[in-house]
């Protein structure tokens, strides 16, 4: 299990390749990448604030839950903070399991929990001004399915 919280960019190809290499024998790898969306051209950048210390602990706890619940060979979470331009990767998760069902389910679980239980706050910097992204009710509701 690997958790990284960083401001630096990461390379999807490199991260995916090294995760796949370390998960050799697993049978299935799922990766998900979140990007800064352009909101129909209205967004210039995203500023992501986090709570150093708690962030790493919260993500590790979420990843440990995933490892315990599904038959995972490995899991990876990378989440960035700081100022990111439209199109830049914000975060990625990768899961490795003997079969795809566990890898997909664990990746979705990780994403659902990272959304509303990892201490990050997004601020959109756009043509219409600057605003904190509000948490969505459906993101909270998504946790109930687990």
């Amino acid at each position: 299990m690997q958790v990284r919280v960083q401001s630096a960019a990461f390379d999807l190809g490199t991260e995916s390749a090294s995760f796949v290499a370390s998960a050799a024998g697993a049978g299935a790898v799922v990766t998900f990448t979140g990007l800064v969306r352009d909101n129909g051209g209205r967004l210039a950048a995203m500023e992501i604030e986090h709570y150093p210390g708690m962030t790493e602990k919260a993500i590790a706890a979420i990843a440990e839950q995933a490892m315990a619940r599904w038959s995972l060979a490995d899991a990876l979470v990378i989440h960035r903070h700081g100022r990111l331009a439209v199109g830049e990767p914000i975060m990625m998760v990768a899961t490795a399991a003997p079969h795809r069902a566990d890898a997909f389910a664990a990746a979705e679980f990780l994403m659902d929990y990272l959304k509303s239980r990892a201490p990050f706050w997004k601020k959109e910097i756009g043509a219409d001004g600057v605003d904190w992204v509000a948490a969505k009710d459906e993101d909270e509701a998504a946790l109930k399915r687990w």
Partner: peptide, 10 residues
């Protein structure tokens, strides 16, 4: 003690 709005990660 930390106070903050609902989190918006991912």
């Amino acid at each position: 003690v930390a106070f903050f709005p609902p989190m918006t990660g991912g």
